[in-house]
């Protein structure tokens, strides 16, 4: 078995109310783990803790052998993070932005320039390298974010809705990239609402609901418990949200009522 790269013990977080409760996870190197849950379940909070963005939490968390609370910088040097909302400095050009990010990882300027240009070309942004990102579409920004999150070649990737806004070709490319990254030994912690992608690319799926981990296993293992045939159906059963058919009916009834 590969060594564990993420270990959490009773990981919890409260703001005014509890948003994460006793999450116990062990993720091996080379795994793609799909991390799913309804809105407000605590997915982004988990990722923000494991990437060192939120330093105050309860329980223990070790990432790549480092205690995230004590040595967040050691962790940050080795991981890549692609956030959910496409936040980047829009007044910069993609190349300027990548230069900036590369410098924070102490990459050489020539290396950033070379890699940046090649990766932007790969994502069909070659013609926009010198354009400011204020005019970019959501998908174009997402491509820049993906490159910025991986330009330092991290061994562990945290992806929060990475396919958001991407066109069909880019989605296929990213899925292929993730599969090949896994083959080259990288670990991927993948949070998304798009169930069929999670189902296809994940070695293991973790479901959380209302801050609690309610399932953890391969798709086959989860399916053998729920016998539902698809991740979407397993998800709705486990998160207690099976009333979709009747809710849809009610929706139409309300619309049609006077």
């Amino acid at each position: 078995m590969n060594p564990a790269v993420i270990i959490t013990q009773n990981l919890s977080k409260s703001f005014k109310t509890k948003v994460l409760s006793d999450i116990n996870l062990t993720i091996q190197a080379g795994e793609i783990v799909g991390y799913i849950g309804p809105n407000g379940a605590g997915k982004s909070t988990t990722i923000k803790i494991l990437t060192g963005i939120i330093p105050d939490f309860d329980g223990e968390a070790t990432v790549l052998g480092f205690d995230i609370r004590k040595e967040p910088l050691e962790v940050k040097r080795r991981i890549g993070y692609i956030p959910e909302n496409a936040a980047l400095y829009e007044t910069l050009t993609p190349l300027e932005y990548l230069h900036f990010i590369g410098q924070l990882y102490k990459l050489e300027r020539t290396e950033i320039e070379k890699k940046g240009k090649e990766l932007l070309n790969l994502f069909e942004l070659g013609n926009y390298m010198e354009s400011r990102m204020t005019t970019f579409s959501k998908g174009m920004r997402q491509k820049v974010l993906l490159i910025a999150g991986m330009i330092h070649n991290p061994s562990l990737l945290f992806l929060d809705e990475p396919l958001s806004g991407l066109d069909a070709n880019a989605v296929i490319l990213v899925k292929e990239i993730l599969t090949q990254l896994k083959r080259s030994g990288k670990t991927i912690f993948y949070s998304s609402h798009i169930m069929d992608v999670v189902e296809k690319i994940s070695d293991r799926i973790v479901i959380i609901n209302k801050g609690e981990m309610i399932a953890n296993g391969t798709f086959e293992e989860l399916n053998s418990q729920a016998h539902r045939g698809s991740l979407e159906k397993i998800f709705t059963e486990l998160t207690g949200n099976q009333q979709h058919v009747s809710a849809a009916g009610q929706f139409i009834n309300i619309l049609e009522s006077k």
Partner: peptide, 13 residues
């Protein structure tokens, strides 16, 4: 707060 997602995840103390 855009620094939160752009700079905080990087190895900057």
């Amino acid at each position: 707060t855009s620094d939160n997602t752009i700079i905080l995840p990087r190895p900057v103390d």
